[in-house]
Amino acid sequence: MQPAIETQVVIAVALAAAVTYSLRLGGLLLASRFPRSGRFRRGMDALPGALLFSLVLPSIVAEGAWGLVAAAVTALVVLRSRNTLAAMLCGMLVIFLARRFS
């Protein structure tokens, strides 16, 4: 059987896609009109780290003490080995063991 996409699904997903793409391209196009030096530049330079840290911190904290341990282990492994995959797996292992045995 060949599945067809319902019209309402076509519309809903198309709108979600349009919104998402506009934000992606809009951010880039707006930024090129901003000043490239001084305070503004310093803010933009700090942005990637600030975004990434904000992305993970609440989920680390939500995991409790073991979340902090898992994050520390992940950070240590990536600093030592430069291997993101190994770091990810070590962090997951901590959570896996913590949930199983505590």
């Binding site: 990434l52 993970v56 989920s59 680390i60 993101t84 797996l89």
Partner: peptide, 13 residues
């Protein structure tokens, strides 16, 4: 936790 772990590693980067 895969998402959190991988992004923690990237944040360190």
């Amino acid at each position: 936790f895969a998402f959190t772990a991988v992004f923690t590693a990237l944040a360190v980067g």
